[in-house]
Amino acid sequence: MKTLLLAATLSLVSAAALAAADSGKQLYAVYCTQCHGVAGNGKGINAAQMAVQPRDHTDTKEMSARTDEELFKVIQHGGKSINKSVLMPAWGGNLKDDEIHALVGYLRELCCQKN
């Protein structure tokens, strides 16, 4: 019984996580691919003209070196908030906290779930 309940709870949790990841992907397509690329590799259509190159979000090593909190902060407050380029905008005026969490979840998929 206990195991059943646990299994049920677990599948609920993963369903919710999946839904969040999906909307993270959609938000990423709208706001981030213009610079970070349709594949998340840091080579979006704007990159060729930019003085500082956008981070490659598929770079497992670099991206694993950052905590979820750090990723949340740079998305909300921009590159300037972590002494990096102003070319990484602050999205806190466009995105709600839960949307930024969804984006962090999607970044984790991009960086670290390669097959």
């Binding site: 691919t33 213009q34 349709v38 080579k43 979006g44 259509i45 990159a47 060729a48």
Partner: peptide, 19 residues
């Protein structure tokens, strides 16, 4: 330069996405 929804007109290339 990249249309109404730019990611829809981006195509990956060796030098990164191009319009």
């Amino acid at each position: 330069p990249a249309g109404a929804f730019p990611p829809a007109h981006a195509k990956p290339s060796a030098d990164g996405d191009v319009v």
